[in-house]
Design a protein around this nucleic acid. Sequence first.
DNA 1: GCGCATACAGTAAGCGCGTACACGGCGAGG
DNA 2: CCTCGCCGTGTACGCGCTTACTGTATGCGC
Lengths: 347, 347
Amino acid sequence: MRTVPTVYEVARHAQVSTATVSRVLSGNDRVRPEYRERVFAAVAELGYVPSGAARDLAARRAGVLGLCFPDLVGDQDIESDAMFWYDEIIRGMERAARRRGYALLIAACHDTDDVDLVTTVAGRCDGLVVLARTVPAPVLERIAGRIPVVMLAGTRTPDEVARVVDHLVVANRAGAREVTGHLLDVHGYTDVWFIAGPDSPDSAARFEGYQSALTERGLPVPQHPHATGDFTTAGGRRAVAALLSEGHRPRALVCANDQTALGALTALAGEGLRVPQDVAVTGFDGIQLGQHVRPALTTVAQPMRQLGETAVSMLEERLADSALAARLVEMPVRVDIRDSCGCSAVP
Amino acid sequence: MRTVPTVYEVARHAQVSTATVSRVLSGNDRVRPEYRERVFAAVAELGYVPSGAARDLAARRAGVLGLCFPDLVGDQDIESDAMFWYDEIIRGMERAARRRGYALLIAACHDTDDVDLVTTVAGRCDGLVVLARTVPAPVLERIAGRIPVVMLAGTRTPDEVARVVDHLVVANRAGAREVTGHLLDVHGYTDVWFIAGPDSPDSAARFEGYQSALTERGLPVPQHPHATGDFTTAGGRRAVAALLSEGHRPRALVCANDQTALGALTALAGEGLRVPQDVAVTGFDGIQLGQHVRPALTTVAQPMRQLGETAVSMLEERLADSALAARLVEMPVRVDIRDSCGCSAVP
DNA sequence: GCGCATACAGTAAGCGCGTACACGGCGAGG
DNA sequence: CCTCGCCGTGTACGCGCTTACTGTATGCGC
């Protein structure tokens, strides 16, 4: 393979200066049309592709946005579980980024290790979105000193981080409160249990929403979730299966997320219990799959697309004004009533 | 925000040279432990995050792999369709890349425009994977002069491109042939129709596989697909609905991909036809959703994970030896028998 | 005691591009 | 006819890092 051409080759070939080449390629400058033609011809002939690295270094801008998400799957078979919540976030972000002319640099990172990867990502983009529980707080704080950072979901971060990182969350409490209220008011269930996710701010906030729904109606309020999963389908299945094997028969299950709810469906089916006739189930997130399982999952849908759009906007604003104070933005959710709560089970 | 620290600040702070800082951060060099400590301390104290751009430029290596995929959704609501085939490719690639210490730079690109975006991506990574029908051949050829390129799916490219770009495809023909054979032999259907995708090499190869299954059994072989969709659910629904409204009632539909098959299911349900009792349906790709719809979709599953792994391996090999001749690698597929072909419909 | 190999540390030269600044040519106004 | 200003072009510096090369101790064998 012959040597890769640079601006210098292009300039020589087109008999202009490198500055002119650069101007032509950046588009928006006044260059004599004749020169412009010559440059384009040289680019085509030499097969010139500008070096992103050199470009970024000189221009101090990459045209790339980063996204770190948790690797929930670990080393398991990726085909073993359904799509995750973050898959849809990735899509949403990619779209939002592309609309503004950015490419998206993505990497899954564990909270513990992978600091190199995070650095690889952070050093190469103009702004970074981090899903909750993926990057250790101190690392995040350091990165925020270099580029704008938006943290998506999860809010319980140390103060020093909260001061430099924007947060974007959804109305976890309100959503859980509303869907729980639906089960209580519309369906009249009294025995409504909560299946938590892992120890995370999101799961906790949803549990609080569930609690308030009970409180407001003067019902007994459990101080802890009735079972605990890990936000995966397998975890939800195990948690609910354990509950059932102990002989418990709640009338409805409010699950911390959709994956957990899907696992619950499996566990219930395993015990021969019908959903929603015997046990009602609700989820949280609004992943695609929830519409397609039977019974279709009643859930609290997050506005995936707007989440991506908003995250990118926040990065851009901070890019424009680095002195901006850290913000906490909460986006509304929408309760999607489908079948698993009992709504279409016509008596 | 104070000025972003560079190697120079770190070096001064740690009272060593920039070379030493660089050596410490790159890990694998002999540096007096005392100095090493001092460098780490300085990095931590200053909140140093190395510039990816400068690093790439100097090292001539980015630690980033690129992936361009088609934007099938266009400007529609992203939440309007199920997950695509390429969503799973993205996951697979991300995993494969991460395992080898690369981050993944992704961008959706139309075939026509977005050449800038493609360049943005290509200029910033060490290797590029391009899904079929996303980047114009001449552009691809040019990029291949700079970094290794693997094209995923689709094979009908001009010779000059095929000479410089590796291709990775799945056994479209064999898969379609096998699943068609299943419908013919196991179920005894004679009236098996083919619903194509858009004008693409993949759809064409699958149609050919379908044809050979018929040929081998001495059955009449249609010269053209019976209907044509566009690889989306909506397209599949329209195509099949049109067929049905004309009064056609094939016994089985072999669809060019899963999305099309899902659309077919909808169209059939709309006419009150039962799957598989009245009409059997098969797909191609093996997307997650196919397992969860009812009836579960019989399909030809692509090895998503190995596809990602193999693509990354091919890039690495070419990175190690740029003189390598262009290769065409075909990966096997697996027919996943589920319900939509009639297999679990116990009489 | 001398020469040489060894082990690190530092110096400085780029990597390929953007762009501030300098510079020259030309039309208009005085 | 001279001067001023504008427009388009080129020169050259620097972005922040890696690394080849050079320099300086130190240990070893003779």
